[in-house]
Design a protein around this nucleic acid. Structure first.
Lengths: 340, 340
DNA sequence: TACTTTTATGCAACCGGTTGCAAAATTGTT
DNA sequence: AACAATTTTGCAACCGGTTGCATAAAAGTA
């Protein structure tokens, strides 16, 4: 492979200047139609292809956006990244991907890397470990667009896209109550993460609204996983009160709940089970698991749109927008003992 | 935000040249320890951060790799990308992500975009539509490292990382035979994609080896999906021969098979079911689905390693390597009527 | 035809680093 | 102390575009 052709080659071949060539290639209005065509033709002839690196350096815009997510192994994030990429691609942005692997130091490093790469903006969801947020403030300080989604942090003065998790918890609980369940358990995480706390608050609110007691024996705080769902359910079943429904902090936990109930020969949906996230598998496990959809795609889309809007503004942090998506209740067998 | 500090600022502050600063920051051995320390200290003081764009332009290396996958919505690809990113990050490479969305023209565009971005290499898995491969040849022609994984194409003269899909089909079938299943059905795609064809060939080989007949009535070619699994199973059940096991072209199809068998009140694993991919959900549906693990993570890792190896060579296409991973049989309830 | 406007192009600096080669500074040798 | 060998640093070109400003060319007007 001989050296790649540059605008200098085109200019030389045509006996014009590189500035003219540059303008022709970028459809700058001040160029005459005639030369534009000449340049385009010659560019094609020489198999020219821009060097975006050079272009970025001189223009100061990289047309690249950085995305930091905990891990692509979590389907929700893969889905969100999918949508972000799909949306931004339409506007000629490329996506630099960085996984924090749920580690604070990796996340800090990710921000550093992306800033060094001169991204035009960063869309991020925080790692479970993250407490300090100076690295995010640095992004803002540099005047780059920053958007936080799903796993947010109240102290970051940047636009946010998230689910109304309170509403999610409320919806799930209210649905159970409407189905006649009264003694409702909840297996969730003991970590202080906003989304999980909010879900729980929604749960509490729905109970209060229906004048139902919150039964502490039915509430387990630990991990979120199939295993944790099983253990949690076993623990609940040993308490003096028998639950007639259990909410899983996420769908994996809910699967564990289902397995434990089956093992204990407790019928579902006589005893109801619901989870959060509406994972792919939720619809086809037995019984099909009711869940609250987290709208990963919509969230990714909104992030992308928000970025496109911000990047156009002189001062992106003028008024900080907050997009709160409504959760969607997906009713399936595991909670429907009345209708259906 | 005032302008970012550059090596010029550091040089000026220290009364030395930018070349010296550059060398100090890059740990070039020809620099004296004294000045290196001075530069590093001043860099920290001024909160300096490299501009990788500038660095890339002048050095000719972007330290970025492009990854093209059909879509992150497919868990296998998300998982592979996860591993690629994780592995390459260790070696200071960043990852530009591009989804072809199973579209040929998008894929072509992806290659173009990544080349323009001056990536040091591209790791790709082909879209279902792709027949022409000139865009990949362009990558090779430019001397950039190209690695194809999973969805490969015989005419691309680049290293490949893939699963031994023949072996996968063979393993699945042999396992069924060992479990005493004799009338084995297969629901697969009608598309001519190597991996699926290979799986089927493995199926045929295992049957032949065991002197079992290949029962055409039990073979359905169409789509791969839960729906297709259900439809396919219904079709098979209507044939004159009743199957005692059915293989799903992927785990989703296998889930459909399970659902259809349940609906027809046919017991599993009296009638066996096995799929391919070992999706997350496979282990916890009822009955737990046996499957062939596709080793997404391992595949990603191997791609990364292969790239790191190639990128060091003067002529990356000297001898083209091919990494073929062995599939792993995951035995679960859905096929284990003997032991366990 | 001469002069003003309005395009279209060229000039040249700039973006922020990297790197081969030469020159200067140090160190070593006798 | 003089000279050679070695280590450090500086010089300057280069990577491949972009863009504000000036100038040349084309078009419009009187």
């Amino acid at each position: 492979m001989n050296k790649k052709t540059t605008i200098y080659d085109i200019a030389r071949a045509l006996g014009i200047t590189v500035s003219t060539v540059s303008r022709a290639l970028n459809n700058v209005p001040t160029i005459s139609e005639g030369t534009r065509q000449l340049v385009l033709a010659k560019a094609k002839e020489l198999n020219y292809s821009v060097n975006k690196i050079a272009s970025s350096l001189s223009s100061g815009r990289s047309n690249t956006i950085g995305v930091i997510v905990p891990t692509m192994q979590i389907h929700f994030f893969a889905e969100a990244v999918h949508s972000i990429e799909k949306e931004l691609k339409k506007h000629n942005y490329s996506l630099l991907l960085y996984q924090s692997n749920e580690s604070y130091s990796d996340e800090v490093n990710g921000i550093k890397t992306l800033l060094e790469a001169q991204v035009d903006g960063i869309i991020a969801s925080l790692s479970l470990e993250t407490q300090q947020i100076t690295h995010f403030q640095e992004v803002i300080k540099q005047g780059k667009c920053l958007i936080i989604f799903d796993r947010t942090h109240r102290d970051i003065a940047a636009p946010v896209v998230k689910l109304n998790d309170f509403e999610a918890g409320y919806l799930a609980t209210k649905h159970l109550i409407e189905q006649g369940y009264k003694k409702i358990g909840f297996i969730t995480t003991n970590k202080e993460i906003a989304i999980f706390q909010d879900r729980f608050s929604g749960f509490e609110a729905a109970l209060k609204e229906a004048d139902l007691p919150q039964l502490d024996d039915l509430i387990v705080r630990g991990e979120l996983s199939i295993e944790a769902g099983i253990k949690g359910t076993e623990q609940i079943l040993q308490s003096s009160i028998q639950p007639d429904a259990i909410i899983g902090g996420d769908d994996f936990t809910a699967v564990g709940i289902i397995q434990a109930l089956k093992a204990a020969e407790i019928a579902i949906p006589a005893t109801g089970v619901i989870g959060f996230a509406n994972q792919t598998f939720s619809s086809f496990i037995t019984p099909a698991l009711s869940s609250i959809d987290q709208q990963a795609n919509k969230m990714g889309e909104e992030c992308a749109k928000l970025f496109l809007k911000m990047v156009k503004q002189k001062n992106p942090y003028e008024d900080i927008e907050q997009v709160v998506l409504d959760p969607i209740l997906i009713k399936r067998k595991s909670t429907c003992r009345i209708d259906k």
